[in-house]
Write a protein that binds this DNA or RNA. Structure first.
Lengths: 352, 352
DNA sequence: TATTTTAGTGCAAACGCTTGCATATATTTT
DNA sequence: AAAATATATGCAAGCGTTTGCACTAAAATA
């Protein structure tokens, strides 16, 4: 009963097509505008007619055409989410947080993965703005070194909130982790546990996160009175091969590190495995600590010390800011720093 | 330069608003229809005018309004993806596969999580059909025991492809894993490795997966000549508490299982940890095998035997089928069974 | 009772694009 | 040279809502 056979259409006489408010209007002998207002629960329509209309709508299986509604209102109630990868613990938690809040507020989310390609990022933003999303939440690629594509969004009045990997030179709200402090605490913790030759397996410095980590790494070592050996401070793309290569060199060199801090939890897992394969022990020979977390870290032996990031919360806050911009036209350009938690597990202190 | 000040509009004279094809048409003294055709690279427009139009469009920063285009064409180039959870290895791999293919074919994806609630599933399908998605790919909740909400989709001519958790009583294409066989092989492997008291920690039997697992579990035990003890065949919601409770009972009972098959990889990780905490050894005292996989299984000690599921491939195939329905009106109602791989690791055979 | 206010409904334009059909040249065919 | 065809463009309706304004009748005020 979801369709009517309409005979008043010229080109598609007798075409089977979904019920519209016009169909309802004709059936009930009221104007389409009355139907629209009734279904939107406008106070201008009497309760009696509302009831009649709602009843008929249910009866005929009427389903609002959001496309038409969006065109008319110039609002799609859709927000775009741009992330490097979906199959990643942190990002999927963030999206989870975004989706939950969005759904409750009557928004849909459009997701796209950049796979860390700047070109794809540009392309995605272009199509999202064509789709007329009401706003965008994005985590930039590591390749993103200029912001022209973001400027197009502002020019089109599409609010943007950046999270995690951001560009401080672009005016918009940003939600990030206190990366400097996370590294600082990690190093300090290792130093105070007696480790002296601390190495860092980091990501590409083109992104704010890695550069903040790098800075904190150097400065904290100095503060703790430890030497900074250049070969112990690596910036890689963190592919499995990169990790393998770096670790093999470290573990077989004359001067081994006695502690390793990895940028990602996946790297930590790989490193942990490699160390054990070399018959070295964690944390006695080498300590291990990760700047990102995922549940797996608690299931390996020994459990790996890590910085727990508030993914859900980051997503929720980003969405919250975006909604403020969308619904209250509140235009801010500040940076919110989310708290992290250094969770000390057995991989980072010697039992003595 | 993205906006024009329009003075020909009645109600919003002087309003700043995005460039439309009408603006381009006026600037170039051609008809809007010509602009539309030119930008869509219609063969009916001369190369010269196409060039002029494309150039002007770039110059003014014209960006197609997909909403209007969708309304006009009755096609949104958007597909809906409905999954229980995003932060789950298998599902995020599936979505990954869907997104990749979709993006390459010019489709956007709208994602929503049911969080395993039937009511939310219904609500999601309603709003997705209001959004006029061109098709939907869904993995049903474990609570979904009737298909009325799916019928509304067919009534609205929205193609649907189900994956993983499906309802065989609904006519549409389905992409699933050979769950029966996966369990069968898992049990057979354990039996042949000398384990005799095999237990299964399964999911809620309301869903096809768990019931296929259950069936295979019983039948294979029988075939292998092993006893089926009811307390060793559990169906739970697989929350952390459920797992804990079940395992505690098993491990402390007089009659312990000597092998455990878990429905999910997360459960396997938890079980592995609990077994070790009880000072029992894997695989000597108890073998462990999982019916779902995730990278973490390879990082724990011992590595956990598991059934690897082709997530990406499941996503790609589902999307491929959906595109066939959307673009070639191909209406099929068959079931594709994806191959899995039983990956035998150290958790499931004794070194002797 | 005459006048203003309020409540409930309808009219019609607008949102920006697509597309069937008509029209006007330009090109080819007889 | 006339007729038929091909090529390029314009016209206008249509997609399904929303919303400002106009209108009518009933209720409230003077």
């Amino acid at each position: 009963m979801l369709f009517l056979h309409k005979s008043n259409l010229k080109n598609r006489a007798m075409a089977k097509s979904p019920i519209t408010i016009n169909d309802l209007a004709r059936e009930l002998n009221v104007a389409p505008s009355t139907v629209s207002r009734a279904l939107n629960n406008s106070p201008k329509i009497s309760d009696l007619t509302k009831q009649k209309i709602v009843k008929k709508a249910a009866e005929l299986g009427y389903n609002l055409n959001m496309v038409a509604s969006s065109l008319s209102r110039s609002r799609t109630n859709t927000i775009g989410v741009v992330i490097p990868f979906l199959n990643n613990f942190f990002y999927s938690e963030v999206v989870n947080g975004i989706e939950e809040l969005a759904f409750n507020k009557g928004y849909r989310i459009l997701i796209a993965q950049t796979r860390n390609s700047f070109d794809k990022e540009k392309e995605i933003l272009r199509t999202m703005s064509a789709t007329r999303v009401d706003g965008i939440i994005a985590c930039l690629t590591t390749e993103t070194t200029n912001t022209d594509h973001l400027k197009i969004l502002s020019a089109n009045d599409i609010p943007l909130v950046l999270f995690d990997r951001v560009r401080f030179d672009f005016p918009c709200r940003k939600v990030i982790i206190d990366n400097y402090s996370a590294m600082q605490q990690s190093v300090a913790h290792l130093a105070r546990s007696g480790y002296k030759k601390i190495a860092h397996l980091g990501g590409p410095i083109t992104c704010n996160i890695s550069s903040e980590h790098a800075k904190a790494f150097k400065e904290t070592l100095k503060r703790e009175g430890l030497p900074l050996l250049t070969q112990f401070h690596l910036s890689t793309d963190l592919t499995e091969e990169d990790i393998m290569e770096a670790i093999k060199i470290w573990l077989t060199s004359r001067l081994k590190p006695d502690a390793i801090i990895t940028a990602t939890s996946y790297a930590a897992l790989v490193v942990s495995k490699l160390i054990k394969e070399q018959k070295l022990s964690i944390p006695e020979d080498i300590a291990l600590s990760s700047l990102t977390s995922e549940p797996a870290l608690q299931f390996v032996e020994p459990q790996i010390t890590s910085v727990a990031l508030p993914g859900r919360d980051t997503g929720k806050t980003s969405m919250d800011y975006l909604l403020n911009e969308i619904e209250h036209k509140e235009q801010k350009s500040d940076t919110t720093i989310k708290p992290y938690q250094l969770i000390i597990r057995n991989s980072s202190f010697r039992n003595k």
